[in-house]
Write a protein that binds this DNA or RNA. Structure first.
Lengths: 231, 231
DNA sequence: CACGGACAGATTGTCGACATTATTGAGGAT
DNA sequence: ATCCTCAATAATGTCGACAATCTGTCCGTG
């Protein structure tokens, strides 16, 4: 059976440019949480029409990145600490399921690629390159989703991930985290390689439990030294 | 801590009427799968402007009920059999998680309401009222989501449910299904009443495994006697 | 007869204008 | 001094029109 691609090959969708740029702007922090997104201003700033901005806002609202209130406009959604933890919890549940499936279905190619990622991870850890490690981390998980071949779950997990971007760069700053994370990834890889669904699910669950812990740590850190102020 | 409401008290959102009516129309089968949704036609049919229809389509696309291709318009999305099963699988995973949480957090009010639902269910089964039973089934699960107090997961599960509506009315037609379903719900209720997270998760998982089986049965049935034809 | 290009109809994408609605600030009464 | 009223302002919601794009058909050519 042909494997379903994670992203449709051709799906540029509507209001694409405005949507992507707004999304990018929110993710990168150009638009701060709780900031009002006035359609006209955003339109001129992005160099598109108000209609496109509108479509983008509706989509981002549905996606959970902005809140849209009738007659009151749009704001960049501030993901509360509680929501961030809830998101991570759901992500853990779904990724555990995906890991289980991936263990049964992973092809030789999947395993080869995952092995490459793990090898590169070791190098990044040795070089203390946390940013590079973070990218590899994303690639590792993404590869597992592909191997699991579960379009619905993959889409949901990807959507969840984009919502909690705000805290992503905080979590990798925890001292000693990357080393432990590497070991967890190695364990997951070994389970996949052994085609052991039970073990794969369990090691993924353990990994994401650690991530949750780190997230709590990051939240506590931010609580005492916020990088932004509501305004 | 105040429990997060499942739906915000005041959030009529934008393009609300068009969105709701289109969604209703798709769910009730007025718009058939794969049917083209021409903006102008839908607008006149629903008695709203094209702009509202557009916003509704974008939202429904994000939600997965319609597909939106650039310059080629919108179609009612045909959920493939495979996707339907995937959706059910994810739903099972998330609802199992929610049941676990609900077991720990269910209040006396939650349990009283659930008990009422179960009692009513028995009466509907006795009367062979499959439709009424189906409504109660929705109420039962909804109540558990509320008790679990997990906004993110609840939203996702609700969204998933709306996507697989097409087969909903097929599954309840299976002979003897309602009786078994009732017993499964009773088991879940008992687990929640006992505040046993492990048992609640397990009985919910068992229940949804049965639902998955029934779904497969319904799909096989439709394959031999489709109620609609692509056109 | 098959194939390909051009034309016509239909539909979507985008923009601007106007109506509707919330918000803000000043002014006055208590 | 505080609160209420009400107008001014800004932003959103909606509509119609035009341009860009796609689809299907017809006709000419090989």
């Amino acid at each position: 059976m042909a494997r379903t691609p994670l992203r449709e090959p051709v799906a540029p969708e509507i209001g694409h440019t405005a949507y992507r740029r707004l999304r990018e702007g929110i993710a990168s922090g150009q638009f701060h949480p709780n900031e009002r997104l006035v359609e006209a201003s955003v339109a001129t700033r992005l160099g598109v029409g108000r209609t496109a901005v509108r479509a983008a806002l509706v989509r981002l609202d549905q996606e959970g990145l902005v809140t849209l209130e009738p007659n009151r406009g749009a704001r960049v959604r501030l993901i509360s600490d509680r929501e961030a933890l809830e998101i991570e919890e759901v992500r853990a549940t779904l990724e555990a399921m995906l890991a289980r499936r991936a263990a049964s279905r992973a092809t030789a190619t999947d395993l080869r690629d995952l092995r490459l990622v793990v090898v590169e991870m070791r190098q990044r850890v040795a070089k203390n390159d946390a940013i590079g490690y973070s990218d590899l981390n994303a690639r590792f998980h993404h590869r597992i989703w592909a191997a699991a071949d579960h379009a619905i779950a993959s889409r949901l997990v990807g959507s969840l991930k984009s919502q909690s971007i705000r805290l992503q760069y905080q979590t990798i700053l925890r001292p000693g985290r990357t080393e432990r994370s590497l070991r967890e990834h190695e364990a997951i890889f070994e389970a996949l390689k052994a085609h052991d669904p039970e073990l794969a699910e369990e090691s993924m669950r353990a990994h994401l439990a650690e991530v949750q812990e780190t997230l709590k740590w990051a939240i506590d850190g931010l609580r005492h030294a916020p990088t932004w102020l509501p305004g």
